[in-house]
């Protein structure tokens, strides 16, 4: 059986970070959840991008108030998720935002005991 004081480290995880205009995050989260993401963290931020400056007067239509999303996904789903988000956030239009994906060394969160038990009994580190 797994011990109570155990810490399970999950591997093969990717982090997708999305920067969109304020108000768009909800829609991106919805798409990501439909594509299998467990959830997302949204920050409020402020900033301008490269394309926004190039737009000239049209750049005014781009809100400088931004939302940043962190979506943690398994490596297998990451590429398709990346594409879904690109399409749903309409990133092929200048000023709509940016997204990137980074490999995470490790990730850790609550894992139900019975699920953890399925991956084998936790063993104490060899004494001594």
């Amino acid at each position: 059986m797994s011990k109570k004081n155990e810490l399970i480290v999950l591997t093969d995880v990717m982090l997708i970070t999305v920067v969109v205009q304020r108000g768009v995050a909800d829609q991106v989260v919805q798409v990501a959840v439909e594509a299998g993401a467990q959830g997302a963290t949204v920050f409020h931020a402020h900033g301008t991008g490269l394309r926004q400056k190039h737009l000239g007067i049209l750049g005014l239509t781009v809100n400088t108030e931004k939302e940043i999303l962190y979506i943690v996904v398994p490596a297998e789903q990451a590429d398709s998720m990346f594409e879904r988000i690109f399409v749903s956030a309409k990133m092929d239009t200048p000023g709509m935002g940016i997204l990137w994906m980074t490999r995470l060394d490790k990730m850790s969160t609550y894992v139900p005991h019975d699920v953890a038990a399925r991956f084998g009994v936790h063993t104490e580190r060899a004494a001594g």
Partner: peptide
């Protein structure tokens, strides 16, 4: 800019 870009902006 494409027409759709203008619309989206």
């Amino acid at each position: 800019l494409r027409a759709v870009d203008l619309h989206r902006l």
